[in-house]
Design a protein around this nucleic acid. Structure first.
Lengths: 239, 239
DNA sequence: ATCTGAAGTCTGGTATATCAGATCCCACAC
DNA sequence: GTGTGGGATCTGATATACCAGACTTCAGAT
Protein backbone atom coordinates (compact mmCIF):
# COMPACT_ATOMS: atom_id res chain seq x y z
CA UNK A 1 0.00 0.00 0.00
CA UNK A 2 2.73 2.42 0.94
CA UNK A 3 5.31 2.84 -1.80
CA UNK A 4 8.71 1.67 -0.63
CA UNK A 5 11.49 2.56 -3.02
CA UNK A 6 14.22 0.93 -0.98
CA UNK A 7 14.93 -0.48 2.46
CA UNK A 8 14.11 -3.54 4.48
CA UNK A 9 11.58 -5.81 2.79
CA UNK A 10 10.53 -7.61 5.94
CA UNK A 11 8.35 -4.88 7.47
CA UNK A 12 5.98 -2.23 6.16
CA UNK A 13 7.68 1.12 5.73
CA UNK A 14 6.20 4.15 7.40
CA UNK A 15 5.16 7.12 5.32
CA UNK A 16 7.56 10.00 5.38
CA UNK A 17 6.17 12.78 7.56
CA UNK A 18 5.50 15.96 5.69
CA UNK A 19 7.75 18.71 7.08
CA UNK A 20 4.79 21.09 6.72
CA UNK A 21 3.07 19.39 9.61
CA UNK A 22 5.70 20.51 12.05
CA UNK A 23 4.36 23.17 14.32
CA UNK A 24 6.28 26.31 14.97
CA UNK A 25 5.36 29.13 17.30
CA UNK A 26 4.80 31.63 14.52
CA UNK A 27 2.40 29.27 12.78
CA UNK A 28 0.48 28.73 15.96
CA UNK A 29 0.25 32.47 16.51
CA UNK A 30 -0.70 32.99 12.90
CA UNK A 31 -3.50 30.43 12.96
CA UNK A 32 -4.79 31.54 16.32
CA UNK A 33 -4.86 35.21 15.38
CA UNK A 34 -6.38 34.43 12.01
CA UNK A 35 -9.15 32.40 13.57
CA UNK A 36 -9.77 35.13 16.13
CA UNK A 37 -10.00 37.80 13.47
CA UNK A 38 -12.31 35.74 11.26
CA UNK A 39 -14.45 34.95 14.28
CA UNK A 40 -14.96 38.67 14.70
CA UNK A 41 -13.11 38.97 17.96
CA UNK A 42 -11.47 42.20 16.81
CA UNK A 43 -13.16 45.30 15.51
CA UNK A 44 -12.05 46.62 12.15
CA UNK A 45 -9.53 49.38 12.62
CA UNK A 46 -8.55 48.13 16.05
CA UNK A 47 -4.87 48.44 16.83
CA UNK A 48 -2.90 45.42 17.91
CA UNK A 49 0.19 45.71 20.05
CA UNK A 50 3.11 43.41 19.40
CA UNK A 51 4.42 43.40 22.95
CA UNK A 52 0.99 42.83 24.35
CA UNK A 53 0.39 39.88 22.02
CA UNK A 54 3.80 38.47 22.85
CA UNK A 55 2.93 38.61 26.52
CA UNK A 56 -0.47 37.00 25.99
CA UNK A 57 1.04 34.14 24.02
CA UNK A 58 3.96 33.91 26.40
CA UNK A 59 6.52 34.25 23.62
CA UNK A 60 8.85 36.90 22.31
CA UNK A 61 7.88 39.47 19.74
CA UNK A 62 9.83 37.82 16.93
CA UNK A 63 7.29 35.11 16.03
CA UNK A 64 4.52 37.64 16.60
CA UNK A 65 6.00 39.95 14.01
CA UNK A 66 6.32 37.14 11.52
CA UNK A 67 2.73 36.03 12.06
CA UNK A 68 1.54 39.61 11.62
CA UNK A 69 3.51 39.83 8.40
CA UNK A 70 1.65 36.78 7.10
CA UNK A 71 -1.69 38.20 8.13
CA UNK A 72 -0.76 41.44 6.43
CA UNK A 73 -0.05 39.67 3.16
CA UNK A 74 -3.32 37.81 3.51
CA UNK A 75 -5.07 41.15 3.77
CA UNK A 76 -6.52 40.59 7.23
CA UNK A 77 -4.49 43.31 8.89
CA UNK A 78 -2.92 46.47 7.61
CA UNK A 79 0.55 47.60 8.62
CA UNK A 80 1.23 51.29 8.96
CA UNK A 81 5.03 51.51 8.98
CA UNK A 82 6.43 52.63 12.32
CA UNK A 83 2.91 53.01 13.57
CA UNK A 84 1.63 49.52 14.08
CA UNK A 85 -0.86 47.15 12.56
CA UNK A 86 -4.62 47.42 12.61
CA UNK A 87 -7.27 44.78 12.03
CA UNK A 88 -8.94 44.86 8.64
CA UNK A 89 -11.95 42.58 8.66
CA UNK A 90 -15.66 43.19 8.62
CA UNK A 91 -18.66 41.95 6.71
CA UNK A 92 -17.67 43.77 3.55
CA UNK A 93 -14.24 42.17 3.67
CA UNK A 94 -15.84 38.77 4.21
CA UNK A 95 -18.10 39.31 1.20
CA UNK A 96 -15.09 40.07 -0.92
CA UNK A 97 -13.31 37.00 0.35
CA UNK A 98 -16.26 34.96 -0.83
CA UNK A 99 -16.17 36.65 -4.21
CA UNK A 100 -12.45 35.97 -4.48
CA UNK A 101 -13.02 32.36 -3.62
CA UNK A 102 -15.85 32.18 -6.15
CA UNK A 103 -13.65 33.64 -8.87
CA UNK A 104 -10.72 31.35 -8.15
CA UNK A 105 -12.69 28.21 -7.43
CA UNK A 106 -14.69 28.60 -10.63
CA UNK A 107 -11.48 29.08 -12.60
CA UNK A 108 -10.17 25.88 -11.08
CA UNK A 109 -13.40 24.05 -11.87
CA UNK A 110 -13.06 25.18 -15.46
CA UNK A 111 -9.56 23.78 -15.71
CA UNK A 112 -10.48 20.61 -13.86
CA UNK A 113 -13.20 19.92 -16.42
CA UNK A 114 -10.62 20.18 -19.19
CA UNK A 115 -7.88 18.26 -17.47
CA UNK A 116 -9.54 15.57 -15.41
CA UNK A 117 -8.92 12.01 -16.52
CA UNK A 118 -11.22 9.00 -16.55
CA UNK A 119 -10.18 7.50 -13.19
CA UNK A 120 -10.18 10.84 -11.36
CA UNK A 121 -13.57 11.59 -12.88
CA UNK A 122 -14.92 8.32 -11.54
CA UNK A 123 -13.58 9.20 -8.11
CA UNK A 124 -15.29 12.56 -8.19
CA UNK A 125 -18.57 10.94 -9.11
CA UNK A 126 -18.07 8.47 -6.29
CA UNK A 127 -17.60 11.31 -3.80
CA UNK A 128 -20.77 12.95 -5.09
CA UNK A 129 -22.62 9.66 -4.62
CA UNK A 130 -21.40 9.40 -1.04
CA UNK A 131 -22.61 12.95 -0.50
CA UNK A 132 -26.06 11.91 -1.69
CA UNK A 133 -26.10 9.08 0.81
CA UNK A 134 -24.84 11.27 3.65
CA UNK A 135 -27.44 13.86 2.79
CA UNK A 136 -30.36 11.48 2.94
CA UNK A 137 -29.09 10.09 6.24
CA UNK A 138 -28.45 13.59 7.58
CA UNK A 139 -24.89 12.73 8.49
CA UNK A 140 -23.45 16.22 9.03
CA UNK A 141 -19.95 15.12 9.98
CA UNK A 142 -19.59 12.99 6.88
CA UNK A 143 -20.90 15.83 4.77
CA UNK A 144 -18.31 18.21 6.14
CA UNK A 145 -15.56 15.74 5.44
CA UNK A 146 -16.90 14.87 2.00
CA UNK A 147 -17.26 18.52 1.11
CA UNK A 148 -13.58 18.98 1.84
CA UNK A 149 -12.67 15.93 -0.21
CA UNK A 150 -14.86 17.11 -3.06
CA UNK A 151 -13.22 20.49 -3.46
CA UNK A 152 -9.78 19.08 -2.74
CA UNK A 153 -10.27 16.50 -5.47
CA UNK A 154 -11.24 19.18 -7.96
CA UNK A 155 -8.16 21.19 -7.02
CA UNK A 156 -5.92 18.22 -7.67
CA UNK A 157 -7.66 17.42 -10.95
CA UNK A 158 -7.06 20.96 -12.15
CA UNK A 159 -3.32 20.49 -11.55
CA UNK A 160 -3.13 24.02 -10.22
CA UNK A 161 -0.90 24.33 -7.16
CA UNK A 162 -0.80 28.08 -6.99
CA UNK A 163 -4.53 28.61 -7.44
CA UNK A 164 -5.33 25.94 -4.90
CA UNK A 165 -2.99 27.60 -2.41
CA UNK A 166 -4.61 30.95 -3.07
CA UNK A 167 -8.07 29.57 -2.41
CA UNK A 168 -7.08 28.23 0.97
CA UNK A 169 -6.57 31.77 2.14
CA UNK A 170 -10.09 32.78 1.21
CA UNK A 171 -11.63 30.32 3.60
CA UNK A 172 -13.09 32.24 6.47
CA UNK A 173 -15.40 29.77 8.05
CA UNK A 174 -14.39 26.64 9.87
CA UNK A 175 -15.82 23.25 10.68
CA UNK A 176 -17.86 24.48 13.63
CA UNK A 177 -19.78 26.91 11.47
CA UNK A 178 -20.20 24.29 8.78
CA UNK A 179 -21.83 22.02 11.27
CA UNK A 180 -24.44 24.67 11.99
CA UNK A 181 -25.11 25.07 8.29
CA UNK A 182 -25.54 21.39 7.67
CA UNK A 183 -28.20 21.15 10.33
CA UNK A 184 -30.66 22.69 7.93
CA UNK A 185 -32.15 19.99 5.68
CA UNK A 186 -33.05 22.46 2.94
CA UNK A 187 -29.47 23.72 2.85
CA UNK A 188 -28.16 20.16 2.74
CA UNK A 189 -30.41 19.39 -0.21
CA UNK A 190 -29.44 22.55 -2.09
CA UNK A 191 -25.74 21.91 -1.56
CA UNK A 192 -26.14 18.34 -2.76
CA UNK A 193 -27.83 19.42 -5.96
CA UNK A 194 -25.07 21.92 -6.63
CA UNK A 195 -22.31 19.44 -5.89
CA UNK A 196 -23.92 16.84 -8.12
CA UNK A 197 -24.29 19.30 -10.97
CA UNK A 198 -20.69 20.48 -10.60
CA UNK A 199 -19.39 16.92 -10.58
CA UNK A 200 -21.39 16.06 -13.67
CA UNK A 201 -20.21 19.12 -15.57
CA UNK A 202 -16.58 18.44 -14.70
CA UNK A 203 -16.73 14.74 -15.52
CA UNK A 204 -18.42 15.37 -18.85
CA UNK A 205 -15.84 18.03 -19.65
CA UNK A 206 -18.23 20.95 -19.88
CA UNK A 207 -15.77 23.57 -18.63
CA UNK A 208 -17.99 26.61 -18.95
CA UNK A 209 -20.89 24.98 -17.19
CA UNK A 210 -18.65 23.70 -14.41
CA UNK A 211 -17.28 27.18 -13.98
CA UNK A 212 -20.70 28.82 -13.76
CA UNK A 213 -22.08 26.27 -11.38
CA UNK A 214 -19.07 26.35 -9.11
CA UNK A 215 -19.28 30.09 -8.93
CA UNK A 216 -22.95 30.08 -8.07
CA UNK A 217 -22.37 27.40 -5.49
CA UNK A 218 -19.60 29.31 -3.75
CA UNK A 219 -21.50 32.58 -3.78
CA UNK A 220 -24.76 31.06 -2.61
CA UNK A 221 -23.27 28.99 0.18
CA UNK A 222 -21.09 31.96 1.06
CA UNK A 223 -24.20 34.03 1.62
CA UNK A 224 -25.53 31.40 3.95
CA UNK A 225 -22.35 31.51 5.97
CA UNK A 226 -22.36 35.29 6.00
CA UNK A 227 -25.84 35.37 7.42
CA UNK A 228 -24.79 33.09 10.21
CA UNK A 229 -21.57 34.82 11.07
CA UNK A 230 -22.68 38.41 10.68
CA UNK A 231 -26.40 38.01 11.19
CA UNK A 232 -28.92 38.65 8.49
CA UNK A 233 -27.86 42.23 7.89
CA UNK A 234 -27.39 42.61 4.17
CA UNK A 235 -27.41 40.58 1.01
CA UNK A 236 -24.18 39.99 -0.81
CA UNK A 237 -23.95 41.46 -4.28
CA UNK A 238 -25.04 38.75 -6.64
CA UNK A 239 -23.04 37.73 -9.73
CA UNK B 1 -6.73 71.39 -6.15
CA UNK B 2 -5.65 69.84 -2.92
CA UNK B 3 -8.54 69.47 -0.52
CA UNK B 4 -7.99 71.52 2.58
CA UNK B 5 -10.51 70.74 5.29
CA UNK B 6 -9.04 73.23 7.76
CA UNK B 7 -5.96 75.29 8.45
CA UNK B 8 -4.33 78.51 7.30
CA UNK B 9 -6.05 80.04 4.30
CA UNK B 10 -3.12 82.17 3.18
CA UNK B 11 -1.00 79.38 1.68
CA UNK B 12 -1.70 76.13 -0.12
CA UNK B 13 -1.68 73.18 2.25
CA UNK B 14 0.53 70.21 1.49
CA UNK B 15 -1.04 66.85 0.96
CA UNK B 16 -0.70 64.46 3.83
CA UNK B 17 1.88 61.83 3.03
CA UNK B 18 0.50 58.34 2.94
CA UNK B 19 2.18 56.27 5.66
CA UNK B 20 2.29 53.41 3.19
CA UNK B 21 4.92 55.23 1.18
CA UNK B 22 7.43 55.09 3.97
CA UNK B 23 10.16 52.68 3.17
CA UNK B 24 11.26 50.12 5.64
CA UNK B 25 14.08 47.66 5.28
CA UNK B 26 11.82 44.63 5.21
CA UNK B 27 9.74 46.17 2.41
CA UNK B 28 12.83 46.92 0.41
CA UNK B 29 14.06 43.38 0.87
CA UNK B 30 10.62 42.02 0.05
CA UNK B 31 10.30 44.00 -3.16
CA UNK B 32 13.83 43.32 -4.26
CA UNK B 33 13.57 39.60 -3.65
CA UNK B 34 10.16 39.46 -5.24
CA UNK B 35 11.40 41.21 -8.35
CA UNK B 36 14.43 38.93 -8.49
CA UNK B 37 12.30 35.82 -8.21
CA UNK B 38 9.82 37.00 -10.84
CA UNK B 39 12.70 37.93 -13.12
CA UNK B 40 13.77 34.32 -12.96
CA UNK B 41 17.01 34.96 -11.11
CA UNK B 42 16.41 31.92 -8.93
CA UNK B 43 15.74 28.40 -10.03
CA UNK B 44 12.62 26.79 -8.66
CA UNK B 45 13.51 24.58 -5.72
CA UNK B 46 16.65 26.57 -4.99
CA UNK B 47 17.39 27.07 -1.31
CA UNK B 48 17.85 30.54 0.10
CA UNK B 49 19.93 31.20 3.17
CA UNK B 50 18.80 33.84 5.63
CA UNK B 51 22.25 34.75 6.90
CA UNK B 52 23.62 34.97 3.40
CA UNK B 53 20.80 37.26 2.31
CA UNK B 54 21.27 39.40 5.40
CA UNK B 55 24.93 39.78 4.56
CA UNK B 56 24.20 40.64 0.93
CA UNK B 57 21.69 43.31 1.91
CA UNK B 58 23.90 44.49 4.73
CA UNK B 59 21.18 44.10 7.33
CA UNK B 60 20.33 41.72 10.13
CA UNK B 61 18.29 38.58 9.65
CA UNK B 62 15.16 40.01 11.27
CA UNK B 63 13.85 42.01 8.29
CA UNK B 64 14.95 39.18 6.01
CA UNK B 65 12.80 36.73 7.92
CA UNK B 66 9.82 39.04 7.73
CA UNK B 67 10.25 39.55 4.00
CA UNK B 68 10.50 35.80 3.49
CA UNK B 69 7.31 35.35 5.46
CA UNK B 70 5.53 37.72 3.10
CA UNK B 71 6.89 35.94 0.06
CA UNK B 72 5.78 32.67 1.58
CA UNK B 73 2.22 33.90 1.99
CA UNK B 74 2.33 35.19 -1.57
CA UNK B 75 3.23 31.69 -2.69
CA UNK B 76 6.58 32.61 -4.25
CA UNK B 77 8.65 30.65 -1.78
CA UNK B 78 7.93 27.64 0.36
CA UNK B 79 9.06 27.34 3.96
CA UNK B 80 10.04 23.95 5.30
CA UNK B 81 10.04 24.43 9.07
CA UNK B 82 13.51 24.17 10.61
CA UNK B 83 14.88 23.43 7.18
CA UNK B 84 14.76 26.68 5.31
CA UNK B 85 12.89 28.25 2.45
CA UNK B 86 13.05 27.33 -1.21
CA UNK B 87 12.05 29.31 -4.26
CA UNK B 88 8.77 28.31 -5.87
CA UNK B 89 8.47 29.99 -9.24
CA UNK B 90 8.62 28.75 -12.80
CA UNK B 91 6.61 29.10 -15.97
CA UNK B 92 3.78 26.97 -14.65
CA UNK B 93 3.52 29.12 -11.56
CA UNK B 94 3.53 32.25 -13.72
CA UNK B 95 0.73 30.84 -15.85
CA UNK B 96 -1.33 30.25 -12.78
CA UNK B 97 -0.65 33.75 -11.53
CA UNK B 98 -2.05 35.04 -14.78
CA UNK B 99 -5.11 32.83 -14.44
CA UNK B 100 -5.60 34.07 -10.89
CA UNK B 101 -5.35 37.64 -12.05
CA UNK B 102 -7.77 36.92 -14.88
CA UNK B 103 -10.28 35.40 -12.48
CA UNK B 104 -10.05 38.24 -9.97
CA UNK B 105 -9.79 41.08 -12.44
CA UNK B 106 -12.81 39.84 -14.36
CA UNK B 107 -14.78 39.57 -11.13
CA UNK B 108 -13.85 43.15 -10.36
CA UNK B 109 -14.82 44.27 -13.87
CA UNK B 110 -18.19 42.62 -13.37
CA UNK B 111 -18.78 44.52 -10.14
CA UNK B 112 -17.44 47.76 -11.57
CA UNK B 113 -19.98 47.55 -14.39
CA UNK B 114 -22.75 47.28 -11.83
CA UNK B 115 -21.47 49.90 -9.42
CA UNK B 116 -19.81 52.58 -11.50
CA UNK B 117 -21.49 55.99 -11.49
CA UNK B 118 -21.93 58.53 -14.28
CA UNK B 119 -18.87 60.70 -13.47
CA UNK B 120 -16.54 57.75 -12.91
CA UNK B 121 -17.83 56.22 -16.13
CA UNK B 122 -16.99 59.39 -18.01
CA UNK B 123 -13.49 59.33 -16.52
CA UNK B 124 -13.00 55.75 -17.64
CA UNK B 125 -14.06 56.66 -21.15
CA UNK B 126 -11.68 59.59 -21.05
CA UNK B 127 -8.80 57.31 -20.10
CA UNK B 128 -9.70 54.99 -22.96
CA UNK B 129 -9.69 57.97 -25.34
CA UNK B 130 -6.25 59.00 -24.15
CA UNK B 131 -5.12 55.45 -24.76
CA UNK B 132 -6.35 55.69 -28.34
CA UNK B 133 -4.30 58.85 -28.83
CA UNK B 134 -1.20 57.40 -27.22
CA UNK B 135 -1.57 54.30 -29.36
CA UNK B 136 -1.69 56.17 -32.64
CA UNK B 137 1.29 58.29 -31.61
CA UNK B 138 3.16 55.20 -30.39
CA UNK B 139 3.81 56.79 -27.00
CA UNK B 140 4.85 53.73 -25.01
CA UNK B 141 5.51 55.53 -21.73
CA UNK B 142 2.09 57.14 -21.75
CA UNK B 143 0.49 53.81 -22.57
CA UNK B 144 2.16 52.16 -19.63
CA UNK B 145 0.98 54.89 -17.31
CA UNK B 146 -2.52 54.94 -18.80
CA UNK B 147 -2.79 51.18 -18.55
CA UNK B 148 -2.11 51.46 -14.85
CA UNK B 149 -4.66 54.24 -14.46
CA UNK B 150 -7.20 52.25 -16.43
CA UNK B 151 -7.11 49.17 -14.25
CA UNK B 152 -6.74 51.22 -11.08
CA UNK B 153 -9.84 53.19 -12.01
CA UNK B 154 -11.83 50.02 -12.54
CA UNK B 155 -10.68 48.73 -9.17
CA UNK B 156 -11.87 51.88 -7.46
CA UNK B 157 -15.17 51.83 -9.31
CA UNK B 158 -15.82 48.29 -8.15
CA UNK B 159 -15.41 49.46 -4.55
CA UNK B 160 -13.54 46.27 -3.75
CA UNK B 161 -10.59 46.85 -1.50
CA UNK B 162 -9.78 43.25 -0.76
CA UNK B 163 -10.01 42.04 -4.34
CA UNK B 164 -7.91 44.94 -5.58
CA UNK B 165 -5.28 44.13 -3.00
CA UNK B 166 -5.30 40.50 -4.01
CA UNK B 167 -4.78 41.39 -7.66
CA UNK B 168 -1.69 43.42 -6.90
CA UNK B 169 0.02 40.26 -5.80
CA UNK B 170 -0.62 38.52 -9.11
CA UNK B 171 1.37 41.08 -11.05
CA UNK B 172 4.55 39.42 -12.15
CA UNK B 173 5.83 41.71 -14.84
CA UNK B 174 7.09 45.21 -14.35
CA UNK B 175 7.38 48.42 -16.33
CA UNK B 176 10.55 47.40 -18.13
CA UNK B 177 8.88 44.34 -19.62
CA UNK B 178 5.80 46.37 -20.47
CA UNK B 179 7.95 48.72 -22.46
CA UNK B 180 9.17 45.83 -24.57
CA UNK B 181 5.60 44.72 -25.18
CA UNK B 182 4.41 48.12 -26.22
CA UNK B 183 7.09 48.36 -28.87
CA UNK B 184 5.03 46.04 -31.06
CA UNK B 185 2.41 48.07 -32.98
CA UNK B 186 0.15 45.05 -33.45
CA UNK B 187 0.17 44.40 -29.73
CA UNK B 188 -0.58 48.05 -29.00
CA UNK B 189 -3.54 47.93 -31.37
CA UNK B 190 -4.89 44.72 -29.90
CA UNK B 191 -4.60 46.03 -26.35
CA UNK B 192 -6.34 49.23 -27.34
CA UNK B 193 -9.28 47.36 -28.84
CA UNK B 194 -9.62 45.30 -25.71
CA UNK B 195 -9.39 48.27 -23.38
CA UNK B 196 -11.94 50.17 -25.41
CA UNK B 197 -14.35 47.25 -25.40
CA UNK B 198 -13.92 46.75 -21.65
CA UNK B 199 -14.51 50.42 -20.96
CA UNK B 200 -17.65 50.42 -23.09
CA UNK B 201 -19.04 47.33 -21.43
CA UNK B 202 -18.43 48.73 -17.96
CA UNK B 203 -19.83 52.17 -18.72
CA UNK B 204 -22.94 50.71 -20.29
CA UNK B 205 -23.39 48.43 -17.31
CA UNK B 206 -23.05 45.16 -19.19
CA UNK B 207 -21.50 43.23 -16.31
CA UNK B 208 -21.25 39.86 -18.00
CA UNK B 209 -19.67 41.25 -21.11
CA UNK B 210 -17.21 43.32 -19.12
CA UNK B 211 -16.27 40.23 -17.17
CA UNK B 212 -15.67 38.12 -20.26
CA UNK B 213 -13.68 40.77 -22.05
CA UNK B 214 -11.54 41.55 -19.05
CA UNK B 215 -10.75 37.91 -18.63
CA UNK B 216 -9.79 37.45 -22.25
CA UNK B 217 -7.69 40.59 -22.11
CA UNK B 218 -5.75 39.49 -19.06
CA UNK B 219 -5.19 35.98 -20.38
CA UNK B 220 -4.18 37.11 -23.84
CA UNK B 221 -1.81 39.85 -22.72
CA UNK B 222 -0.51 37.47 -20.06
CA UNK B 223 0.46 35.03 -22.78
CA UNK B 224 2.38 37.76 -24.53
CA UNK B 225 4.30 38.50 -21.35
CA UNK B 226 4.93 34.83 -20.74
CA UNK B 227 6.45 34.42 -24.16
CA UNK B 228 8.81 37.27 -23.50
CA UNK B 229 9.84 36.26 -20.01
CA UNK B 230 10.07 32.53 -20.52
CA UNK B 231 10.60 32.36 -24.22
CA UNK B 232 8.09 30.89 -26.61
CA UNK B 233 8.02 27.50 -24.99
CA UNK B 234 4.43 26.60 -24.44
CA UNK B 235 0.96 28.04 -24.80
CA UNK B 236 -1.01 28.85 -21.74
CA UNK B 237 -4.19 26.92 -21.27
CA UNK B 238 -6.95 29.00 -22.76
CA UNK B 239 -10.27 29.79 -21.02
C1' DA C 1 34.01 -1.89 0.83
C1' DT C 2 29.92 -0.69 3.27
C1' DC C 3 27.26 0.62 7.05
C1' DT C 4 26.53 2.92 11.45
C1' DG C 5 26.47 6.55 14.46
C1' DA C 6 28.62 10.14 17.11
C1' DA C 7 30.65 14.63 16.86
C1' DG C 8 30.95 18.88 14.44
C1' DT C 9 28.88 22.37 11.63
C1' DC C 10 25.24 24.85 9.52
C1' DT C 11 21.04 27.22 9.76
C1' DG C 12 16.43 28.42 11.08
C1' DG C 13 13.59 29.58 15.30
C1' DT C 14 13.14 32.29 19.32
C1' DA C 15 14.51 35.60 22.89
C1' DT C 16 16.43 39.92 24.18
C1' DA C 17 18.48 44.51 23.61
C1' DT C 18 18.73 48.81 21.38
C1' DC C 19 17.35 52.57 18.40
C1' DA C 20 14.29 55.89 16.57
C1' DG C 21 9.79 57.46 14.98
C1' DA C 22 5.10 58.48 16.77
C1' DT C 23 2.16 59.93 20.27
C1' DC C 24 0.87 62.01 24.45
C1' DC C 25 1.01 65.54 28.05
C1' DC C 26 1.70 69.57 30.10
C1' DA C 27 3.95 73.93 30.94
C1' DC C 28 4.30 78.28 29.01
C1' DA C 29 3.44 82.16 25.94
C1' DC C 30 0.03 84.95 23.66
C1' DG D 1 -8.96 80.03 26.08
C1' DT D 2 -5.96 78.69 22.49
C1' DG D 3 -2.05 77.20 20.51
C1' DT D 4 2.84 76.02 20.43
C1' DG D 5 6.68 73.31 21.61
C1' DG D 6 9.62 70.43 24.43
C1' DG D 7 10.15 66.32 26.77
C1' DA D 8 8.54 61.81 28.56
C1' DT D 9 6.76 57.60 26.98
C1' DC D 10 5.11 54.09 23.99
C1' DT D 11 6.01 51.01 20.42
C1' DG D 12 7.55 49.25 16.03
C1' DA D 13 11.99 48.34 13.43
C1' DT D 14 16.35 46.43 13.58
C1' DA D 15 20.42 44.11 15.52
C1' DT D 16 22.39 40.57 18.19
C1' DA D 17 22.63 36.40 21.03
C1' DC D 18 21.52 31.84 21.83
C1' DC D 19 19.31 27.41 21.26
C1' DA D 20 18.03 23.28 18.92
C1' DG D 21 16.96 20.66 14.85
C1' DA D 22 19.04 19.05 10.51
C1' DC D 23 22.78 17.90 7.75
C1' DT D 24 27.71 16.47 7.02
C1' DT D 25 31.63 14.03 7.82
C1' DC D 26 34.45 10.61 9.18
C1' DA D 27 36.23 7.11 12.38
C1' DG D 28 35.31 2.58 13.72
C1' DA D 29 32.93 -1.74 13.33
C1' DT D 30 31.53 -5.51 10.42
Amino acid sequence: MIPEPSGSPRSEAFAKIDPKFQMTVRDHVHRTLRAAILAGRFATGEKVNERSLAEQFGVSTTPIKEALRQLETEGLVEALPRRGVIIRFDMGWAEEMILARAALESMIAHLAAKRIGKPAGAELTAIADLMAKATSSADADSLISLNEQFHEHIHRSSRCGYLAKLIERQQFYDASIRRVIHMDPAERQKALEEHTAIAKAIVTGDADLAERQMRNHVVRSGETYLNIVFGNKKDIERG
